[in-house]
Structure formats: C-alpha cells, structure tokens
Design a binder for these strands. Structure first.
Lengths: 343, 343
DNA sequence: TGTTAGCACTCCAATGATATGAGTGCTAAC
DNA sequence: GTTAGCACTCATATCATTGGAGTGCTAACA
C-alpha cells in the first residue's frame, strides 16, 4: 500500500498532468505545490511510484505521466468530488431552458451541456418508452383511402401515422374500431404490445382484413418507434480542443467509431447495470477507444432505465469535474422527469 | 480571351490539382496528358496564364495552382457535367431507402448522401411549411384539464400539442369548437395563419376565454414550428479527409462556424433565389469561409422554395461531381415530394 | 534512517548548415 | 511557334550541434 505522502505526491502529479497535459517533473511538483520537500526527495518517491506501476516515463529525460493504474486509484480513492460553482450551475440551467419542448430535445440538450462542460465528446442513450402506457387511439380521416392513426399515451404524448382504410368506410365505423382496440390495449405499457398481443387483436377484430392489416402494421411501427433507443452525440468538435487529438488521424479514427450508432449503443449498454461507471484506458474492451476513458451514468425512474449518459475522452480527463457535472445533470433530469410524469 | 490550347491546359491543370492537391508543374502535364507539347511550351503557356490571373505560384520553384478566377472559368465554361455512374446511383438509392419515414429524415438523408458522395461538408436548409394547407383540427381529451390539439394538414401531416382546457368541458363542446375554428382556417396555408387571423378567430369565438387563449397560443406555436426553417448538417467528419484540413486549427475554425445554426441559415438563404449557385473563395462574403467554395442548389415545388442544399469545401473541389450529385438528388427529391403531395 | 545537495548522464527539441530536387525563366537554336 | 539546355530559386529533407529539462546516483547531513 502507498503511504500518505506517496498518495499525496501521486495525486498532485495526476492533477498537474490533467491540467497541463505535459509530463510532470520533480522540480515542478516541488515548486508549484508547497510540500516542504526537495525535488530530490520527490524524485525518490516518484521512482518508487514508477516501480509500483503508477507512473510512466515517455523517455528518460522527460517528466512522468500517470499510468492507467494511477487514474484508477485516483478515481477510486484520491478524487475530491467538489460541487459545481454557482456560475457553472447557472450556465447549465440556462442551456436547459433554451429549448426543452420534447423529450428528444431534453436528451439533446443533455449531450450538449455534458460536452460543453467537460470539453469532451458526450453520448446519451435514451430509452424512449420510459414506461409510457397506452391510453387510447383514434382515427382522424384524411381522404377516401387514408386516415391518420393517433395513439395517445398516459404521459400526454401523441404519435401518429397514416394508415390505409377501405374505400367508403364511414367515420363512425372507424371510431367504433378504434374504441374496440383501445379497450384491449388501455393501460398497457407500449413495450407490452408484442406480437402475441397483436395477434389477439387480429383474431378479435377480423371484421375488415385490409384495415386490420394496416392497423396492426402501424401499431407495430409505433411500438418499435417508442421502444427504439436513440443515441445523441455531443461535442464531437470539442475533441479538437484536447491536445491528445492534435493528430488528425486520431480524430478521424474516433469520429469513425462514433459515427456507427450501433457501436455507440453497445458501448453505452455495456455499463447500464451500475449507476456510475468509470472505465480507464484498456479497461474498455471496445477496440479503437482503448486509449480513452469513459465516465458513464445510468438513470432510472421507478426502477426502469430511462437513459445512459457518458463522456468519452483521453485518459487524461478531469474525472472529478465530469462526475460532478453528471451528478448535477442527474438530479436536474430527475426532477424534470418526475414533474413530467405527474403532469 | 484564351485560345483553345490555353483553355485545354488550364483545364488539365485544374483537374490535376483537384485530384492531387499538389501544385502542378509543366512536366507533369506533359507526361500525364498527351498533348504533343514539350514541357517548355507548356511552361510558356502557364506563364501566360499566370499573367492573366488564372494561375498562382505558392513559391518560385513550385508548380502552379489554379486561382479563384480559374475555378470560376472552369465552372462556367470548361466543366464537363458527366452523369453519375450506375454504381453511384445505386448507392444513393440505397441510402435513401434506409430510412425515409418523415420529411426530416429525408432531409437528413439528403445531407448525409451529399457529404458522402462529395467528401465534403453538406448543409440542407428545409422550409418545413412547403405550402401545406390547414385541413382541420381536433381535440383529443387527455385528462380533466388537458387535451391534445391535433392539426391535420392536406399533405397528411399531423401536428399536436397539449392545451389546457377548462375543468369539466365536455368532449362535444370541444368538438364543436374545433369544428368552428376548422371552418375558419380550412384551406389556408399555414404561413397565412398570422396574428391578424388569430385575432379574427379570437373575436369570433370568445365563448371561453381560457380555452381560447391557450388554443391561440398553441396555434401560434404550431404555425411557428411549421414555418421554422431547419438546418441539417452532414459530413463534418469528411472535412478531415481533405488535405486542406490537415491543420486542426482550420478544422476547428470551420466547425465553429458551422455550429452556429444562425450563420448556416443566413449562408444558405443568401443563395436562395438562383437555382444553382457556385461561390468560389472570396466571392463568398461570409467571414471565415472565404478560402472555401460552396455549391448550392435551391428546390422549388409549385414555385415555392422547399429547401436549399449546399456543399462546402476547399476551393479545390470536385465541382463537376458535386453538381452531378446535386442534380441527381434534385430529381430524386422532386419525384419523392410530388408523390408525397399526390398521396 | 530519511532527506538533500551536487553532479554526471540521458535524450528530446530546437537550431542551423547542407544537400536534394522539383520546377521555373531565359536564351538560343531549330 | 516550338523546344533543348542550363542557370537559378526555394521548399523540404537530412544531419550534426546545442541547450535544457529531468533523472539517477552518491555522499553528506540531521
């Protein structure tokens, strides 16, 4: 185990490196932070820390750089959480209030804020269904062959799509049909509308084959749309602010990976079970981002996963700041969703 | 005026430079393209072209690079349009078919295709209203205090928002009110729903103040939403493929500009009147992109502007290819929209 | 035993000198 | 009008030199 002094020195090295992105030398530590120790002493400690695997030297005459192991220790026990400043909080509130009309926009804002505050790429995976329940459906006539199917959920969301209807079907017939299906589905979560249930509807109301087929198709589509997990990215531009990404080639690699929605989705899903998860460097099993770190938080509402947000950046990341921001966003979103649900 | 030989040489230089991004020397032209001329002759011609302002030399002992004036001539009279290959066409069709459920998705796909095909940043400005006409509106009851206002337009789109309703108002009353307002607005374009018209509605149906206020508010909001011009960006990542953007600083500058939706909107609007517009280098008056070129096309449907698409990249741009792609997309979208409208 | 000053050593990064070569411009001959 | 020949230019690559930041080690000190 490390004694207190070693821990303190390691912490200072990590924090210095995080803010300067330059290898840290013994003189720097002695000069910048008042430890009452000479560079030589610090040098000895650093030498020990290197042997223990916490520090690495890019080359003999450079300073030292924290290893993944050091960051791990830092995140697990050295970090001082530290709340956001009033200023930062005001900034976040301002950004959120800019636009927050729909759920999607809230998630988009979250991604944007996360990346702006942390100067890194952010990702938000939104589980859209979030336990919404079917309330009722209704047809709005459009023309002779088409009507709009509206589905209302208990959170006040409406979804619609155009369905084909048999020529000459009267509005009353449509209303009757809508009522019948509505009674079957009322109160169910959208995720419950599975193939089996659709089959039951089918056999229950086989009065009009054509309409029925298109109705079921539409229901299925709407259900899928609701179930669909959507990925929001933020701050891909911020990447360029990090000295680690001076090299265009590296930027391109990472952006290439982020472009694959499927990959991002898997990446985010991999950490869904734990509330807060920090993955450092090669701890991450996804290829292409093994020289990056990721901080990830999962949100639940009444036990259900609402979404996952993450910040991806170089291992040299302001872990403390990232975690504070996420924490604040978490609380913010929580009240927002709860309010939404009680409406 | 330039004689044919000068034109031919200029064209070859431009095309060589476009494909290699390296200054073109006289030897290169003589070797690569069989003009039956020696490098010396070509050198003389190039010297003339430089005096005439068509070529520039980065430094004495480098080859020559086309000037903005040269690109202008190239675009205006040297370019050979050239259709897309079957392969490319199939690629585009495939990308479009991936997802094209909503208008927004079509525009997003357009941006994506545009950028993938041209290896440059693309922008699409969508005028959402596109001449849609009000058909009718309807209230869908939600709870005691709220209903969902649905507005159906003649292109089959539905828009909705939650409105507050007076406690205890019966569905029939809501239907009556909806019918009344519907009759007033039926057949009008959404853009026509201006403050004046809203006032008329107000004075016509003053039966219930509270409901009325929230109804008008919602109508206004929906109108604005429909009128809103939305910007879709594509291929900001492609930037990094262009040698002109090897320098991270330049990338950052441009991305910073593109991040400002307002700027992009203005940029696109500036070229709305002409069908196809090519702006080369400093011809563009917007600061920050004066070393870029932009190819822009505006789409109309029944005389109304539906949207504008543009490709932004280094002045060394495959103008011919870009124009062909836009042309194809134009036709593609046209049939798509027309089909949409006749549905 | 822990701390520190001193000093030799390492090695990157910056600097400058030199060479290379692509490309031009000019002249004279065809 | 075209072309071969040649001197000239200048960016880029290469290599040696230097300066400095940082380390490791040793010996002295508290």
């Amino acid at each position: 185990m490390l004694n207190d002094r070693k821990k303190k020195i390691l912490q200072l090295i990590i924090e210095d490196y995080i803010s300067t992105a330059e290898p840290v030398g013994s003189r720097t530590i002695a000069r910048k932070y008042d430890l009452g120790l000479s560079p030589a002493t610090i040098r000895n400690e650093m030498s020990d820390l290197e042997l223990l695997g916490y520090l690495e030297q890019p080359h003999t005459s450079a300073g030292r750089v924290p290893s993944a192991q050091a960051y791990r220790l830092y995140v697990d026990s050295l970090i001082e959480p530290g709340a956001l400043s009033d200023n930062e909080r005001a900034l976040i509130n301002g950004w959120f209030n800019e636009r927050r009309r729909s759920l999607d926009e809230i998630f988009q804002s979250t991604a944007k804020i996360l990346s702006r505050m942390t100067q890194n790429v952010s990702m938000v995976l939104a589980n859209r269904d979030a336990g919404a329940r079917f309330r009722y459906m209704k047809f709005l006539p459009l023309d002779e062959h088409h009507a709009i199917l509206c589905i209302i959920t208990d959170d006040g969301n409406v979804d619609n799509c155009v369905v084909e209807i048999p020529l000459g079907m009267r509005p009353e017939e449509l209303d009757y049909l809508a009522g019948k299906v509505s009674r079957l589905l009322e109160g169910r979560e959208l995720s419950e509308i599975d193939e089996e249930l659709l089959q039951i509807i089918h056999s229950n109301i086989a009065e009009d084959k054509l309409l029925f087929t298109s109705l079921v198709q539409s229901l299925r589509r709407l259900r899928n749309k609701h179930m669909e997990q959507k990925v929001f990215l933020g701050g891909t531009k911020q990447l360029l602010n990090q000295p680690e990404f001076r090299d265009v080639e590296r930027v391109r690699n990472l952006l290439g990976i982020l472009e694959e929605e499927r990959v991002v989705r898997d990446l985010l899903k991999s950490g869904e079970d734990s509330g807060l998860k920090v993955t450092i460097g090669s701890e991450n099993k996804f290829s292409g981002i093994q020289d990056c770190s990721m901080v990830q938080a999962t949100y639940r509402l009444n036990g259900k996963i609402v979404g996952t947000m993450a910040v991806l950046g170089p291992t040299r990341m302001e872990y403390g700041k990232v975690i504070s921001v996420m924490d604040y966003l978490h609380k913010y979103l929580k009240t927002m969703f709860e309010h939404e649900n009680n409406k």
